[in-house]
Design a protein around this nucleic acid. Structure first.
Length: 256
DNA sequence: ATGGCTTCATAGTGAAGA
């Protein structure tokens, strides 16, 4: 079973890239972030034609998440239960016995911003909910754009980024608190090349110079980690014309 | 160097992303 995540930065603009990528990489399910589309505009028919069922939670202009799956999705959950949030950042569904949780974690903007406080509160609510969810669903995967680079090796210039949003100590502590639930960073279960990133700024030719961050992650529960046989970042779509600034991350699980 | 790029929005002195 292959599970993927991709912040597409506008599904409307990126739909051709997504369809091409799914044709070349027929994953079992993919989590999308920053669809930036109201539900009425979601390209359900085109994705169905490509072989994918979909569940989605969108809004105008900002945010928006979706899960696509080759098999039907059940027990679809929108948002974090008991956490009021206007912003569409969470959708979860059960796929072949695996609880798939798709998140677009807030960016935070800067450490002195209200958005940073919102990010930390949001992460605490996510952790509290997942603590319950993991008990109910031992096979759980948390995929998405975390907007957190967990360690300095996930940052192209750790000294330059020190103290900045995406790498600050409270954000990294929140990431660790997710691991403390029993989740594992599937990417780090395997040998990986140095300087591996999942996002590069559009400016300053950052991709060509590999000035990136690893902020898109696939975390897996212990039961899934035992079945996990690989995790890769696919840089190919970042090289296309008019790319998303993020690239897909794909984890593969052995089916017993 | 607070810009550099891209998106959606509106026609701004843009806003937000990361």
């Amino acid at each position: 079973m292959k599970l993927a995540t991709w912040n597409v930065n506008s599904l409307k603009v990126r739909l051709p890239h997504l369809l091409d990528w799914l044709a070349a990489n027929p994953v079992d399910a993919i989590c999308l972030q920053e669809t930036k589309q109201q539900d009425a505009d979601f390209p359900q028919a085109a994705l169905q034609t490509a072989g994918y069922y979909s569940a989605f939670s969108g809004q105008k202009t900002y945010n928006g998440v979706a899960i696509l799956s080759r098999t039907p999705l059940s027990e679809v959950q929108y948002g974090i239960p008991n956490f009021t949030d206007e912003q569409k950042r969470v959708i979860a569904a059960t796929i072949n016995g695996v609880r798939v949780v798709c998140v677009y974690i807030p960016n935070g903007q800067s450490l002195d911003s209200d958005k940073y406080q919102y990010k930390l509160k949001w992460l605490a609510a996510l952790r509290d909910w997942l603590a319950l969810e993991i008990k109910q669903y031992p096979n759980l995967a948390l995929l998405g754009d975390y907007n957190i680079a967990p360690e300095d090796r996930d940052v192209y210039d750790p000294a330059g980024w020190a103290g900045n949003v995406l790498v600050s100590e409270p954000e990294r502590a929140a990431f660790q608190s997710l691991l403390q639930l029993g989740l594992r960073d599937s990417y780090r279960l395997f040998e990986q090349a140095d300087k591996s990133y999942s996002w590069w700024d559009y400016r300053m030719m950052a991709f060509r110079r590999n000035m990136g961050l690893r902020i898109d992650h696939v975390l897996v529960s212990e039961a899934l980690a035992e079945r996990c046989i690989g995790c890769v970042i696919d840089k190919a779509p970042r090289k296309l014309e008019r790319p998303s600034d993020h690239t897909p991350v794909v984890a593969e699980m052995k089916t017993d």
